[in-house]
Design a protein around this nucleic acid. Sequence first.
DNA 1: GTCTATAATTAGATAGAC
DNA 2: GTCTATCTAATTATAGAC
Lengths: 211, 211
Amino acid sequence: MPRATAKTRAPNAESDTRERILHAALATFSDEGFQGATTRVIADRAGVNLGLIKYYFDTKLRLWRAAVDRAFGDLRDTLASPPTSLDADNVRQQFRQRTRAFVRFAAAHPEFIRLMNDECKREGPRMRWLVDRHVKPLYARVRELTEQASQTGVLPAMNPISMYYILVGSVGLLFSQAPECRRATGQDPMSAELVEAHAEAITRLFLGADA
Amino acid sequence: MPRATAKTRAPNAESDTRERILHAALATFSDEGFQGATTRVIADRAGVNLGLIKYYFDTKLRLWRAAVDRAFGDLRDTLASPPTSLDADNVRQQFRQRTRAFVRFAAAHPEFIRLMNDECKREGPRMRWLVDRHVKPLYARVRELTEQASQTGVLPAMNPISMYYILVGSVGLLFSQAPECRRATGQDPMSAELVEAHAEAITRLFLGADA
DNA sequence: GTCTATAATTAGATAGAC
DNA sequence: GTCTATCTAATTATAGAC
């Protein structure tokens, strides 16, 4: 089980305090934003003492960066799914599989989308750090895959920037705005039915109606 | 020029202080979120004294609500564009026009998307107020229009919840994440070329390739 | 209406006991 | 490693002069 850049993830229950803080931090930062998230709330959610945040991560900023690294590590683990086969025509099936995997990831990790939406909407050192470290490689990879698919006629021709943001936006918003969706529509977007329906709707939209 | 629920928007330059605060508040809340936005920064951006926020809006929460009302008023003004003709087959052109108008609105008012993304991602009184007051009517209207279009075969068949979030997500993310886009791709999503290309890409994605 | 000054609260960070 | 207690700075809200 390759974990991003684990520090003290040794044999077993040595001390999962660091992990508990990381998990709580990701949830809290994504819910409340960097400013809105208080280290006290993070410590409480993790069930640990406030002082331990300094002990393990020193500052709030370093804790945030560690949480972001963890989130992107999870995404990479998911998207690095087996490339199955590179059959000429199976670019179509490739896109289908990857898109479904991304939809399921977004539904399982809405905090990832929320954190990205929050931090990358404004200029600042955190946005620059996040984009340089994580978004640029992700964008390059998605662009490579979609341009290949566009050239073979599998995906509609489209400028790559629109392609990326339409893809990510259409996949993620339903889950990042889950509380809004529940209240506005009465349905839970995280339900298995809606998640699969959403994945199907998006793949059909991009690939056409034929299953 | 019908403005939502203007209070003291009389003949001319009586005192635009209230308007200046509202404008600065919308920009600041959308950039930094409710907690991250400080009333001091809002006052500074508006070029007015801090005390005037209490004078005009009493509390930070009431200022936030007024800013949201303003943002949705602007959206309604835009989307209430002339229905041109209701020709049977022109459901297609209707969708095209409204989508283009929405793309242009999102590009001109990224703060609207940012504020929605920020506030509606978490449970809380502000989310509930915003959804009950503004999102529910908007969702109902979009749902009505898209279901009609789906039934006549203009839009692909899709559950209405996915339809709404795919539409809004694909339109908005490029502009809400403009700083990220600039840094990751080197291009400005607010440029006229990209805005029009984005509108064209989305309408073609939903309506098919024929112009 | 606009401003200054300040009270009350809360945050991140720190010191140091155990 | 984990905890309590506290420092310092920044915030919303307020009181009241002009």
